[in-house]
Amino acid sequence: KQVAAAAKQVQEGSYSVDLPQDCKEKEVYELVTSFENMAQKLEQLEKTRTELLAGVTHELKTPVTSISGLLQAVKD
């Protein structure tokens, strides 16, 4: 139940999951560990995507502003 709830949490965009590590069954322990690793990697990918998008946006604004200023100067 806790892994299913954590999966729903990740689906909604919250990647900080905290699952108990005291599982008696090896398979359940491996599932919990793998799920936490997956959530951490997804969180890192989301941060990287956000940073990349911000960088690309900034890089595109600079030339557009320069071109706009040049066009205004030519028009004047």
Rank of each mutant, 00 (worst) to 15 (best):
L53K: 15
Q9M: 12
L45T: 09
T50I: 13
E27L: 09
L42Q: 04
R49M: 13
T33F: 06
T48E: 11
T50H: 09
E12Y: 06
E25D: 12
V32M: 01
V56Y: 07
E51C: 06
P20S: 05
L19H: 00
V64L: 15
V3Q: 06
A7V: 14
E59S: 12
S16W: 04
L31N: 01
C23E: 08
L71P: 00
Y15E: 08
K75C: 04
S14R: 13
L70A: 11
T65D: 11
V56F: 04
K47D: 07
L31H: 03
T62I: 15
L19S: 01
S66C: 06
Y15R: 02
A7H: 02
Q9Y: 02
Q2V: 11
D76N: 05
E25F: 02
S66R: 10
D18Y: 07
D18S: 12
V64G: 01
G69V: 05
Q11N: 05
G69W: 00
S34R: 08
D22R: 02
T48D: 09
T62K: 12
S16I: 01
E59H: 13
Q72I: 11
V17H: 01
E46N: 09
E59T: 11
K24C: 07
S14P: 01
V56W: 06
S66L: 14
Q21I: 11
K8D: 11
D76P: 03
V17Y: 01
L70W: 04
I67A: 08
T33I: 05
Q9C: 08
K8L: 15
E43V: 08
V3T: 06
G13H: 04
V10E: 08
K26L: 07
Q11E: 11
L52G: 03
E36F: 09
K24Q: 08
V74A: 08
L53H: 09
P20F: 04
N37L: 10
L53I: 15
E36T: 15
K8G: 14
G13R: 04
M38D: 06
T50Q: 15
T65S: 06
E46W: 05
C23Q: 09
H58P: 03
S16R: 10
S66A: 14
E51N: 15
N37D: 13
T57I: 06
L70Y: 04
V28D: 06
Q21M: 07
T57M: 10
I67Q: 00
H58S: 15
G69P: 00
A4V: 15
L52H: 04
V74W: 03
L71C: 05
S34P: 00
V17S: 06
V64E: 10
